[in-house]
């Protein structure tokens, strides 16, 4: 068997059908991860720190695939209601929770890196603690955390490739199906690899633009 470029091209084109699903999983999961993770990161400055530390440690310390299996195949045995969720919903939820652990760590670090003098100043001008967090500290922490949040998003994108295990026909799911039909494993898997690579490059580019935009006119802290 030798390499057939036209098979690669065909596979590459056909995979566009699965592209929206992969992107959708990644984007929704990242949105969940951002919101949940930011809240966790903030709450780690409170009494809940220890408890949330365990949460973060569990989701960072176990393979995503195990988390997916645990949730999709395991938990419904204990809580049948969870079995009502579709594979897609489960995937998005678990990946979001997984991402939240990484986001929480980035946010926690970034919050600590914001000059505490600004919180002091905020107090003296009469801002409440919540206002200080929202208007002063968080915007600057987000900027500090941006590069590592970008990395988390890249991790989420690559993590979506595990969701085919739940029967979702995302990029990799579709690629597997096609390869099983035509036995052109090399071309098909190369095509799908290129897709992930392109997506990650696009995200990296967008993140850089965002970083530059936030840096323009604003102090590096």
């Amino acid at each position: 068997m030798n390499f057939k470029p036209e098979v690669l091209v065909n596979a590459f084109v056909e995979l566009t059908k699965a592209l929206p699903r992969t992107l959708l999983i990644a984007i929704i999961a990242m949105a969940i991860g951002l919101i949940l993770g930011t809240i966790i990161g903030i709450l780690r400055q409170t009494k809940l720190n220890k408890m949330l530390g365990v949460w973060v440690s569990f989701f960072r310390g176990t393979p995503l695939m195990i988390q997916l299996f645990l949730f999709f195949f395991g938990l419904p045995q204990l809580f049948p209601i969870i079995g009502k969720l579709s594979a897609f919903q489960s995937a998005v939820l678990v990946m979001g929770i997984n991402a939240s652990a990484y986001v929480a760590e980035s946010i926690r670090g970034a919050l600590g890196a914001v000059d505490s003098l600004q919180s002091d100043a905020a107090y003296t001008v009469g801002l409440t603690k919540l206002q200080t967090l929202w208007y002063i500290v968080l915007p600057q922490a987000m900027k500090i955390a941006l590069p590592s949040l970008g990395n988390t998003f890249i991790g989420v994108i690559q993590g979506t490739s595990l969701t085919f295990m739940l029967g979702i026909s995302d990029l990799l799911g579709l690629a597997k199906m096609r390869a099983a039909q035509n036995y052109r494993f090399f071309e098909v898997y190369l095509a799908v690899g290129i897709w992930y690579w392109l997506i990650v490059m696009a995200v990296t580019f967008i993140n850089k633009q965002l970083e530059n935009k936030m840096a323009a006119g604003k102090e590096s802290i």
Binding site: Q118, A121, A122, V125, L127, T128, Q131, I136, E219, I221
Partner: peptide, 23 residues
């Protein structure tokens, strides 16, 4: 403050108006 304590992500004007509006 000795080291000013300005809100570094906000313009000069916003440094003044934010507390006026929010507080």
């Amino acid at each position: 403050f000795q080291n000013f304590g300005l809100f570094s992500h906000l313009t000069v004007l916003k440094n003044l108006t934010l507390p006026l509006v929010k507080a």
